[in-house]
Amino acid sequence: MKNEWPLWEIFIRGQHGMSHRHVGSLHAPDAEMAIKNARDVYTRRNEGVSIWVVEANHIAASSPSDKGPLYEPSESKVYRHPTFFDIPEEVGAM
């Protein structure tokens, strides 16, 4: 297994102005080949205007079990949402 190609995560910009979005993964020996492969695998129907590839082992991810400590604190901070404040209709959109 020593000579296995590394896994790459593929990000595609769907159209001008949008962010790149993760679409999937593939194997390739290097970045250049990963882009070429991504073009063949993920943009055969004009799905993109730009490709990013990142070697999968360079991606650090939060742990699913940390969901509670990471996101629960913001649940009680309802005032971060604009709808928390009553704005009289007469004064227009705000």
Binding site: P82, D86, I87
Partner: peptide, 10 residues
Amino acid sequence: ESFHQRQGYD
């Protein structure tokens, strides 16, 4: 930003 203006107005 909408939150910012609304909290100020409030």
